[in-house]
Design a protein around this nucleic acid. Sequence first.
RNA 1: GGAGGGGUGGCAGAGCGGUUGAAUGCGGCGGUCUUGAAAACCGUUUUAGGGCAACCUAACGGGGGUUCGAAUCCCUCCCCCUCCGCCA
Length: 419
Amino acid sequence: MLDIKFIRENPGIVKEAIKNKGIALDLNALLKADKELAALRQRGQDMATEKNRLTLEIKAAADKAPLKEKARLLGERQGKINKKLKDTELALAEMMALTPQIPAPNAPIGLTDADNTVLRQVGKKPDFGFEPLDHVDLIQRNNWGEFGKITNVCGTRTFALKGSLLRYEFALLQYALDKLAQKGFTTISVPSLAMEDAFFGSGHFPGDKENMYFLPKDGQYLSGTCEIVLNSLHCGEILTEARLPILYAGFSPCFRREAGSAGRDARGLYRVHQFNKVEQFVICRNDPEESAKWHAFLLAGAEEILAGLELPYRVVECCTGDMGAGKVRMNDIECWRPALQKYGETHSCSTLHDWQARRTNTRYRENLGGKVKFVHTLNNTALATPRIFVALLENHQTRDARVRIPKAIRPFMGDAEFL
RNA sequence: GGAGGGGUGGCAGAGCGGUUGAAUGCGGCGGUCUUGAAAACCGUUUUAGGGCAACCUAACGGGGGUUCGAAUCCCUCCCCCUCCGCCA
């Protein structure tokens, strides 16, 4: 969500962003509703002033009846205006919710990930000297998981991990949490259940509703990332500047319906309905330079984790259409998948400036001058399981279908060298 | 699931139909005093929209209603707390 004043003053810039992000929003209709609303507000306010004046007169008057009747009639007219005002407000709010953040000038322009550009490639792709197995074969050979029966019991895109692979999952999550704690993050586990407002606040609603599991008896949704909850942790608050930045390393199980991706990545652990994720989340001062600094910090955090996992990866600059409505900038990290001979997304680092903060009404008071401003928010994956297993198992496999554990993880795995 | 009690400014906590946008205390900010600090004292301190300004309007968990007038009464939803029941 953008500032209405910014939209009034920069309709051209906003129209450009709407076009480049492929958003279905008629900005002219929005501006028209905004004008209508201003006029209605003025009329409503004038009537309220008059009504307040009458009310005081009634209180003082000896004969209240004629004044009361006058006030009642005014109230009727007021009701009509207020109805119109509410309708217009609602229509405007719906359009405002769709207004996109302005993408950074250096973001590639394009509507699909085909227009993303590769920033850098890191690490050496493994040269096996044999035909590598894919992660599903490795799991089945070692009896590390279950893909067949479990889907009969639990549905599509579900899985079970067994034995050392299950232990590996906990080790990796612990590794990521420890790493972030060392970097100054507050580690925090949050519920996967959340109420609608949180999904609106993060920007996942109204657009991405189809991708959320809904629990109709309770009116709650299952979130696909703990960003949704972390983003609302300070909603409605006015923080002191001294409290910023707030760094959260969040953990939660994540749920995604994967609506619209039927048949895609159907094999294995890459795209599943339920997974676990450690997420980096930053709340900072309203300052683009400050945001840029934390963006680099979050990206570096993910890359340090991948370095510890000894995985080859590349960093991608996402184009306008791929980054999502709220984002200024988005960098995906894609890890190498030897079996498919291609890269697959494992991390996503985003700068949103005050776009989410406006939706959650999260603000802070500046030290100097005491001005109240919206905070900036950023987020990046730290580590998501089981998706990371795709790269981890395939890249570290041996000729005899064993899997090597990266040195950094061995302390969490009883110092074992192999799974 | 059953019974009850609550949600008010940065925080604590009054108000329970009419100058209450809101007492009081704490905290914050400015000042007096002091070599400096503390203490004490004085002043100041919600947010949002409109207006050059004086000022006007709105907001006491969300939404709706009653009334000339609602933080205060009614309805409804959400959240928190206590007790009972059930439960990992």
